[in-house]
Design a protein around this nucleic acid. Structure first.
Lengths: 259, 259
DNA sequence: TGACGTCACTTGTCCTAACGAGTGATGACT
DNA sequence: AGTCATCACTCGTTAGGACAAGTGACGTCA
C-alpha cells in the first residue's frame, strides 16, 4: 500500500520504488525480491504493470530474473578480470591480445577467406574487394569462466610479403607478432575501444546475462613503413573484464594553460 | 502470413524475422518499420506479442521507437567522436581528460567534499573515512552534441601538499596537471575502461537512447613517488564516442614463442 | 532408504480489451 | 492566406484472464 504518485507511468513509479530500495541497500545483493504476486498486492497494481516495472530494472542491469525462482538483486560486482593492454610483460605475450597467459582456446579456430567489407577496409586502409585471411577464436579463462571472441584479419598482400606467414596465416597471436618482427618490422599499434549491446549470437557465445554490454577492442598493428599489417578484434562481456592502459608521459606540460 | 515455427516463443520468432530482415538490409537505416497493427496482421499474432518482439529488438539496440510515429531502424552509426587518450598533442591539453579542445562546460561545476567510499578508496590507495575534494562537470561537444560527465577526486592530503591547489582544488583539468607538474611531480597514469548500462540519472543527463551503454574511464594519476594523486572519471554514451590508444613498442619480441 | 510423483510456488507466454497521448495531415473557419 | 479544430494514425499504459513451464519441497510408494 505504499501509495506512490510522483513521476509518470504507474510502472515507472513502481520501478523507481524498487530501484530506490535496492540502491538504498534494503535488499542484499543476490537476495530474493518480492514475487510478482507480492508486488501486485504491495502496490495495488496489475501483473502487467509489475512485469513492466521489472522489465525496466532488468534493462538497467539492476536485477536478474530466473524462471521459476524469482528476481534477484544483481551483485553489482566489478569486473573480476583486468586486461592490461600495452604493458610490458614477459617476452612471449608482450604483444599478445588479449593480454595474459590465462587464455585457452575453446575449440579449433575457424579460418576463412573473405574480401574487405566497408568497415574492415577503412580500418586497414585497403581498397574494396581486396582479399583477406580471417581467423576466429573463442577464448576462455578457466579460472573465472570469462569468454572472449577473438578475430584476426590479414590482407593477402601482407601474408604473401612476409615469409612463414603465407602458408599458414592463422597462427596464435604471439607467433604472429614474432613472425612479423622477424620479417624486419618494428611494430606499433592503435587500439580503439567501443561498447555496444550484443547481438543474439554474441549473447549466447559469450554467455551474457541481461543488460550486459560488450567491450569491443580493435587493434591495428602497423609495421616499419607505417602500413597497416593486421587487424585484431576482441569482444567480451563488460561484466567480466575491464581494460587497463598504463601511460607514462615522456614530456611534461611546457607552459601554463590559459584558463 | 509468413508462417514461422522454429525456435521458441512466438514473440521471439517474430523478433527473429524482423531482425533478419533488418540485418539482411531489407529496411534502410532510419526507415520506418511496419506499425504494430501491420505486424499483427502480417504474423497473425496479438498486440502484446508484437510489442514483446519490438521490445526485444529495442533492447538489442537495433531499432528506435518514437511515440506517435513508429519504429525506425537505428542507423548502426559508428561513434562520431574519437577520444585519443595518452597521445601527445599541443602542450596545453596533452594531459587533459577528455582529450581534445572541443569540450565546453554546460554549467557551473559543482564542488563538494566527501569521504572515501569503498570503491574510490581502493582506487586511490586511501584508508576509509579519508576526506576528498570532489568536482563534477558536464561537458558538451557542440559540434556533435556529445555529452560527457567528468569527475575529479583529490584527497585533502594531496591538495594541502601542493601549493596553489589547496585553496581552489576544483580547477580545469589542464590547470590541474600544470600545477602538479610545477610542484615537482613527474606524472604517470593508469586508465581503466569499463562499460555498463546507465542509471536513470545518467540516461537523462547524457541524453541516451535505448540500449546505449556508457563507457566509463577511470584515470589515476601518480606522481614522482608513485603515490596516487588524483582520480578522474569520465562517462559518456558509447554510441557517440570511442576511445583510441596509440601504443609504441619499445622492445620487440625477444625469443620465439613456444607454440 | 531411495526413487518418484504430486503440489505449490515461481516466472514465461499469449490473448482480449480499453483508453491515454503524441504526430501529422486535412479541411473548415476567420 | 493564415489559423486552428478535427481526425486518423501511431505507440504507451493498464487491466484481467488463462495456461505453459521451471523449481523445490513434501510425501508416498516400492
Amino acid at each position: 500500500m505504499s501509495e506512490i504518485q510522483r513521476p509518470g507511468a504507474l510502472y515507472q513509479q513502481v520501478a523507481a520504488a524498487i530501484r530506490e530500495a535496492i540502491l538504498a541497500g534494503e535488499f542484499e545483493p543476490d537476495s530474493l525480491l518480492p514475487s510478482e504476486a507480492q508486488l501486485m498486492a504491495r502496490y495495488g497494481v496489475s501483473r502487467p504493470t509489475v512485469r513492466n516495472a521489472i522489465a525496466a530494472l532488468r534493462a538497467e542491469g539492476l536485477i536478474d530474473v530466473r524462471h521459476g525462482k524469482g528476481s534477484f538483486v544483481r551483485s553489482s560486482g566489478q569486473p573480476v578480470l583486468t586486461l592490461e593492454q600495452g604493458v610490458s610483460r614477459t617476452a612471449e605475450d608482450e604483444f599478445v591480445m588479449p593480454s595474459g597467459d590465462i587464455w585457452q582456446e575453446a575449440e579449433e579456430p575457424s579460418t576463412y577467406r573473405i574480401r574487405t567489407t566497408k568497415t574492415t577496409g577503412q580500418l586497414l586502409q585497403l581498397d574494396v574487394e581486396e582479399a583477406l585471411f580471417g581467423c576466429d577464436r573463442l577464448l576462455i579463462d578457466p579460472s573465472t569462466g570469462t569468454r572472449a571472441m577473438h578475430r584476426t584479419l590479414i590482407p593477402f598482400e601482407v601474408a604473401e610479403a612476409v615469409p612463414l606467414l603465407g602458408q599458414e596465416p592463422c597462427k596464435p597471436s604471439a607467433a604472429l607478432y614474432w613472425v612479423l618482427t622477424q620479417a624486419g618490422h618494428k611494430l606499433t599499434w592503435t587500439e580503439t575501444v567501443r561498447a555496444r549491446m550484443p547481438l543474439p549470437d554474441e549473447r549466447t557465445t559469450l554467455q551474457l546475462s541481461d543488460a550486459t554490454p560488450i567491450l569491443h577492442v580493435s587493434r591495428i598493428t602497423h609495421g616499419t613503413d607505417d602500413r597497416a599489417l593486421i587487424l585484431e578484434e576482441l569482444r567480451f562481456g563488460a561484466d567480466r573484464a575491464e581494460l587497463a592502459y598504463r601511460i607514462t608521459a615522456d614530456k611534461q606540460p611546457a607552459r601554463r594553460p590559459r584558463s
